[in-house]
């Protein structure tokens, strides 16, 4: 099955990415490898049909870098925290399943937020309600409503970061409006 039409926003980043993967796998970024990779990427994108991803067409590299730095810091602190919980609390641990309502209805943003949340130790996406874009998270060591509220704030903060990185202009405007109100 081939695609209906060639879309610049969706296909070009995908082809460039696949060419990079090809070069990385061969550990060789010479012209020959890259051109062959480009041909293969083109064939793959055109013959193996995937559901289209709703890209917004914008990507803020600065927001991405600042999010990545924060993500790495969170990753280290949370990994140490889970280690510490495993050693000190162990069987006495109390957890919670917390619902987090997200602002965005874009599949990409919801998926990215879910991924980032799952990657940070201490929270795990158990269920996603796509209609209301609600994530249900299983969180380690949550015993009070305040802990749950803190968890929700963290997730919504990482969602805001993803909207700044690659959300649509409308979502970005809503986010700014919300920021100026509160």
């Amino acid at each position: 099955m081939s695609r209906q039409k060639f879309s610049l926003v969706t296909d070009v980043p995908l082809i460039l990415w696949l060419t990079f993967v090809w070069g990385a796998l061969w550990q060789d970024f010479g012209a020959g490898t890259l051109i062959f990779g480009l041909v293969i990427a083109f064939v793959v994108v055109n013959f193996f049909y995937l559901p289209p991803v709703g890209l917004s067409g914008r990507f803020n590299i600065l927001a991405f870098l600042s999010f990545s730095a924060g993500f790495l810091v969170d990753l280290v602190t949370a990994s140490v925290e889970v280690f510490w919980l495993a050693v000190t609390r162990g069987p006495a641990l109390r957890n919670a399943v917390v619902a987090v309502r997200l602002r965005s209805h874009s599949d990409l943003i919801v998926t990215a937020t879910g991924h980032a949340t799952s990657l940070i130790p201490g929270s795990l996406v158990v269920e996603v309600d796509r209609a209301t874009s609600t994530l249900y998270l299983h969180c380690l060591n949550v015993s009070t409503e305040e802990d749950a509220e803190a968890m929700r704030a963290t997730v919504r903060k990482s969602e805001a970061a993803f909207i700044r990185i690659m959300g649509t202009k409308e979502e970005l405007a809503e986010l700014r409006a919300e920021g100026s109100v509160s």
């Binding site: 280290v76 990994s79 280690f83 919980l85 069987p91 641990l93 957890n95 130790p121 795990l124 299983h138």
Partner: peptide
């Protein structure tokens, strides 16, 4: 080691999932 200790010490499936999958990212 954190993953191993977590697997042994945490009480149920979901909390063990945290220990088994997450520390490996770092």
């Amino acid at each position: 080691l954190a993953a191993g200790i977590g697997l042994v010490r945490f009480p149920d499936l979901l909390s063990r999932m945290h220990a088994a999958t997450k520390p490996q990212v770092l």
